[in-house]
Design a protein around this nucleic acid. Structure first.
Lengths: 118, 118
DNA sequence: ACCTATTTGTCCGTATGTATG
DNA sequence: CCATACATACGGACAAATAGG
């Protein structure tokens, strides 16, 4: 994997690494079931610390993009799982909005007005 | 704060620390606006590493229980689940949707098609 | 069943950077 | 300018789960 990170970039290294993986997923370079490099291997190849890679992997796991287990490594999850997570998040959002007396129309307006360019 | 953690407990130290704070919130020992001890202070008093405390704090932040900022420390947020938390949920939903390549239009459609039972 | 290597998980320590007050 | 406090990154050590011989 010819991935790169830049220590001078203000963006944290672990975010850069997570970003590289996300991009590979988006571009179709990585597919569900594919195994990511071991933390040690990727750390060596990127010339960063093992912990920095593992932190990136754990972030990707929190996002539901990969599975991460001891002794086994990191495996790309099926995109369908991500979609179901999205549905769960939508459910929770609607439930919370209803508790607060916020209508769906207002919810939709919040979504359309949010500026999330990050 | 007479908090304790047990190194022999199989539960990770940072989870124990997060648990102590959660419990204090539930019992009403901590109130919105209260400031948590600095990472350094709590680490010293618990006899654990600074990172271990900060990791616990970051987990609590991810749960929306506290605010955590450089130079300022950790402050308990309004537990009443206010409108600001709804905005946070919207942000996270949009972020997740973008990662999955789901447009806002599709997001809106998901919301409008969801049943109201819950 | 055993042993070993691999791989992530946790924790510690240190150093440096950045935002806040 | 200076002290405080969290953020990132490095490194090392050991534990625990997994896979393979």
């Amino acid at each position: 994997m010819l991935w790169r990170v830049d220590p001078r970039d203000p963006e944290p290294l672990y975010e850069q690494i997570a970003g590289v993986v996300r991009r590979a997923l988006g571009e179709g370079t990585l597919h569900p079931g594919d195994r990511l490099p071991s933390g040690k291997d990727l750390a060596t190849s990127l010339d960063v610390n093992l912990h920095t890679v593992l932190r990136a992997y754990q972030e990707l796991r929190a996002e539901g993009l990969i599975e991460l287990r001891r002794g086994r490594g990191a495996v790309v999850l099926a995109s369908g799982r991500g979609a179901s997570q999205l549905a769960t998040m939508v459910d929770e959002l609607i439930a919370q909005a209803e508790r607060l007396g916020v209508s769906r129309g207002e919810l939709v307006r919040m979504i359309n007005e949010e500026d999330t360019d990050a």
